[in-house]
């Protein structure tokens, strides 16, 4: 039993690592194509059919490019910062059920690495640690723009986390559990949570943009400064790790939102599993759509939005949910 469990867990970890690293690469292809379509450009077309091999070309470039550690940086911190972003993104995936359980050769597979009973807290907590990557990278680089970027990362961090926590509190009160599998099973019985908690859904969705650092809250790596914020001093695979972390985070949060609010994989049939993948694809697409359609906000606007608008709304939502559940 113990050995079988160990082998199963290791296989699951390796599969998740490989699938989502590859998806991160393909995600960049989709992002370029979708942005190009919306901005009436062509996007990648030259490498391979429809530019599909662009992902491979980028990969080769990232892997083989010289890894430069500039002088005057704090080398150990500078080296470990990208690893934090990538590693925490994948650590958070340990508590996400990607598919319903299925049988293969008479062996029941649970496509979740560990169903701990505080799943959602663990996921949000570990994803939050991921923001240490940009911040440490920015602070360790001897570069003023990187330092500014690190300061913005700290500002984003202290703003969005309260909103995520309070928004998710109301659904947790209804479900009475923190495990994502319990969330899914609750919605099979009582219908999707989004119908009873639309406010929490919207708040969590907005906070997800801040959590992954996507436009309109893409102010950590501020594109308007032409350089790449915390990534300015990075090159080669270390920069690639930041990239993989960001895209893996987007995929994971796109899994978490439907499982929390939109019924997840339903009753666990094949159709339900496909529906979860479809919902995930929609949320991922929405990240790209927003990037094409919206400008970035300023840091002070983000803090104003989180603390003065979203947080009061979230608190009111929690109070109303509590009152409704009491009476």
């Amino acid at each position: 039993m113990e050995t079988a469990y160990l082998i199963e867990t290791i296989i699951k970890v390796v599969v998740i690592l490989l699938v989502f690293s590859a998806l991160a690469g393909i995600g960049t292809y989709f992002e370029r194509k979708v942005l190009a379509f919306m901005q009436r450009r062509l996007g990648p077309v030259n490498v391979g059919p429809f530019g599909l091999l662009q992902v491979g070309a980028d990969g080769i470039k990232l892997f083989t490019k010289e890894d430069i550690i500039p002088t005057n940086v704090v080398a150990p911190i500078f080296k470990i910062a990208p690893v934090i972003t990538a590693a925490t993104a994948f650590m958070a995936a340990a508590a996400i059920p990607f598919l319903p359980q299925f049988d293969i050769f008479g062996y029941t597979v649970h496509p979740i690495v560990s169903d701990i009973d505080v799943g959602i807290l663990y996921i949000l907590g570990v994803m939050a640690v991921g923001l240490f990557g940009p911040m440490l990278g920015g602070m360790a680089s001897a570069n003023k723009f990187s330092l500014l970027s690190a300061a913005r990362a700290a500002a984003v961090f202290i703003s969005y986390e309260v909103v995520t926590g309070l928004a998710i509190l109301a659904p947790i009160m209804m479900v009475g559990s923190l495990s994502l599998i319990d969330f899914n099973n609750y919605q099979v019985e009582h219908g999707w949570i989004v119908w009873s908690q639309p406010v929490a859904f919207v708040l969590f969705w907005i906070a997800a943009f801040a959590e992954t650092g996507r436009t309109p809250f893409h102010l950590i790596a501020n594109d308007h400064e032409i350089i790449d914020g915390f990534g300015t001093e990075y090159s080669g695979m270390r920069w690639g790790l930041f990239f993989i972390g960001e895209y893996a985070n987007m995929f994971f949060i796109s899994f978490v939102i439907p499982i929390l609010f939109l019924g997840g994989f339903g009753d666990g049939s094949f159709l339900g599993a496909m529906a979860l993948l479809g919902k995930m694809a929609f949320f991922f697409f929405f990240f790209l759509w927003t990037r094409a359609a919206w400008p970035d906000v300023r840091p002070d606007q983000l803090m104003w939005l989180c603390w003065k608008v979203l947080m009061p709304v979230a608190v009111i939502n929690v109070v109303i949910t509590g009152l409704v559940m009491m009476f």
């Binding site: 907590g125 360790a140 690190a150």
Partner: peptide, 30 residues
């Protein structure tokens, strides 16, 4: 104690993040 473990991560990442902000203000951290 899974709950306390997750809370430990959440609370202390936030707390240390605030310390970083002060570090950024008061020192040249490099």
């Amino acid at each position: 104690a899974d709950f306390l473990g997750a809370v430990q991560i959440i609370v202390y990442t936030g707390a240390v993040m605030a310390l970083y902000a002060f570090g950024m203000m008061f020192f040249d951290t490099t």
